[in-house]
Each structure stands twice: as structure tokens, then as C-alpha cells.
């Protein structure tokens, strides 16, 4: 089980559904929600590296189109964080659709994978196995 998962999306429905799925699967101690990139950055700076009070998210599910700071701006800012802030976190993009140019841009940034909305049990299982060696029970 992961210590924490950070959901970054401005759409409440997406956040509700993702939270519900993660809770049902019981893959994380804690689920944190950020409504845009700036909030997400704040959370990571605050939580990583982990302290007694706050767990550092091992996985970030990141949307692209968001107000204030979008997914790309977040990734660019994230790269500037200290290495010890970033070393325990895997970022996976979770979007409705992506242009080829957007995908190329994301590949230059610290992104571990791409998922298309909606998030499902199967999509999540593949990510957990690939990056954390976790196998979801049937």
C-alpha cells in the first residue's frame, strides 16, 4: 500500500470518481486532492520528504487543462524543486485527450506515464505493478 496519492484536477467529478476507486481498491493510506498545479506544488513542497505529520505522495495523477497553473506549468515548476523533494514521487498524466504536440512536450518533462480518463481499476493496476511492483487482488 502506498503512503499517499495526489490527485491534481479542476474537475470535481473526476476527483470524486478517482477518490472513490482508490478508496475501494485500498491501494493508498491517504488520498490528497489539488485543484490546479499550484496547489499540487504546494502539497509536494509541504509533504516531501515525508515527515511524521505528513506522508509524501508516491503517485501523482495529473490533469493537463487547469486554471491558474496547468499540468505543463506544474511539471516545469516541479523540475525546479530539490531532488530530495522529488525522489519518492512518480507522476502519471491523466487526461481526457492529448494532442501529439502536447505528448511530445510532456515527454521532455518528468512524467512516468500517460492515462486517458476515466481512471479504471485496470489502468491503475498496470501503473501500480509497473512502478511499485504492487499487484491488486482479484
Amino acid at each position: 500500500m502506498l503512503p499517499a496519492i495526489l490527485l491534481v484536477d479542476d474537475d470535481p467529478t473526476t476527483n470524486f470518481l478517482s477518490t472513490r476507486l482508490l478508496n475501494r481498491l485500498g491501494v493508498s493510506e491517504e488520498i490528497v486532492v489539488a485543484l490546479n498545479g499550484a496547489e499540487a506544488l504546494g502539497q509536494l513542497q509541504q509533504r516531501c520528504p515525508a515527515t511524521a505529520d505528513a506522508a509524501c505522495p508516491a503517485l501523482v495523477l495529473l490533469d493537463v487543462n487547469m486554471p491558474v497553473m496547468d499540468g505543463f506549468e506544474f511539471l516545469e515548476a516541479y523540475q525546479q524543486l530539490p531532488a530530495e523533494t522529488r525522489q519518492h514521487t512518480v507522476i502519471v498524466m491523466l487526461t481526457t485527450s492529448m494532442l501529439a504536440t502536447d505528448r511530445q512536450r510532456a515527454e521532455q518533462l518528468p512524467v512516468a506515464g500517460f492515462l486517458t480518463k476515466p481512471l479504471t481499476r485496470e489502468k491503475l493496476a498496470a501503473i501500480l505493478q509497473q512502478h511499485f511492483g504492487l499487484v491488486l487482488p482479484e
Binding site: 470518481l17 485527450s97 480518463k117 476515466p118
Partner: peptide, 21 residues
């Protein structure tokens, strides 16, 4: 087309996930 498809897709994919749930 991109934005329209995105903004049309987003509620559709939400509906899809909501129906599943």
C-alpha cells in the same frame, strides 16, 4: 476541434465513469 472534442469528451467520460460507478 481539439477544445470542442476535449470539452465534449470530458462530460462524456465523466458520465461513462459515473454510470460504471
Amino acid at each position: 476541434i481539439y477544445t470542442a472534442s476535449h470539452d465534449l469528451k470530458a462530460p462524456i467520460s465523466n458520465i461513462e465513469a459515473l454510470v460504471t460507478a
